[in-house]
Design a protein around this nucleic acid. Sequence first.
DNA 1: ACTAGACTGCACTGTATAGTATAGTTATGA
DNA 2: TCATAACTATACTATACAGTGCAGTCTAGT
Lengths: 200, 200
Amino acid sequence: MRAKSEEKRQSILNAASEVFRVTGFEGASMSDICAKAGYSRATLYSYFPSKEALFLEIMLAGGQSQAEAITAALDPATPNIKESLIHFGKALLTFIYSPEILALRRLAIAEATRSDFGHLFYTRSRKQGEVVLTAFLKQAMDAGKLRQVDSSVAVAHLSGLLESELEEMFYRSEIVPLDPLYIDRITNSAVNVFMAAYGL
Amino acid sequence: MRAKSEEKRQSILNAASEVFRVTGFEGASMSDICAKAGYSRATLYSYFPSKEALFLEIMLAGGQSQAEAITAALDPATPNIKESLIHFGKALLTFIYSPEILALRRLAIAEATRSDFGHLFYTRSRKQGEVVLTAFLKQAMDAGKLRQVDSSVAVAHLSGLLESELEEMFYRSEIVPLDPLYIDRITNSAVNVFMAAYGL
DNA sequence: ACTAGACTGCACTGTATAGTATAGTTATGA
DNA sequence: TCATAACTATACTATACAGTGCAGTCTAGT
């Protein structure tokens, strides 16, 4: 007999992810997804029970990869806090403004009213990252590298500064990757402002 | 003969606005909008040629009101720059995180891939506000109240700081108005950080 | 080679919606 | 008052899509 393959499942997820990102949840049709994946409708329904289930799995996977990327960008053993924040900022922006992740974030916002998927995505991605970053900053404060203040607020301010020049990206119809040099400039000025307020 | 009334037109816009905000563009049906407005489908189509036209008008009106609110919150004649930024911040956050405007912003993001409406909304609302705020900060810099730096970046940083603790609002399924005391706290800490970096 | 079950292709059901058409009703301005 | 046009109610067209069902085909494991 023939076995269902994990690769096939993945290729369906990839195709669906692309279609959802381009057309949104409502705009995506299961037929489009099948065509993109190269399988028949029946096959798709044998792997995923419904459009919603497919969508949910994509959002959760995307959220998790975002949380992991944020965690990975932090190196707690660094002596120079400013350098490590700059490294973190560049990695963060590169990842969360990549076309794939940005599209997922927009999808999450778009679906926030229709279902809980949006908020689920947020709590599994950004919020997770914030927890890790908060611990990182708290450690830096305790080590005397930053002023002792509410580290959650400091995290929000750092994120807000880093993303401050990129708001327009959410509203653009075509999503293009950011120029690494632009990311460098943005990160440097954001961390400078952060250090002016939170440094010693 | 009978004349079409501007009030009727407005009440259709109001009803449509509410339906769009709750269900999104695709999710909203013209019948829902008719029911909410209390008119027949034919009447609605005699006032607006299509669903898209109706949506566009709502987005543009919302964008303009946002731009006006931002402009109105700035008083260029103020001697104390910090106080005036705090006043501006509170007014800004109160307005752009009101349930109505926040819902429009989410709609704009949701529709950004499907059409240009999202970007149009952005350029007519936020971007307009940024232009005015940039001029305001530039003037303060020239008057020696702030450090002389790129005022566009300063504007982005100020906005980013002000909104930094409110990102979750975009992902929540129910939208609730913010507590004014919470807005005060957020604004104060954001402006403090801003002044630490940009003050003299 | 045989067979279980994965797979295709297609038709079908049921539902929903944008927009139009029409026939009859009501309000209003001259 | 009366003609005009706004209005309602409703039916209709055309389309689209989620999900199901089924007849038959292909493939891998034994």
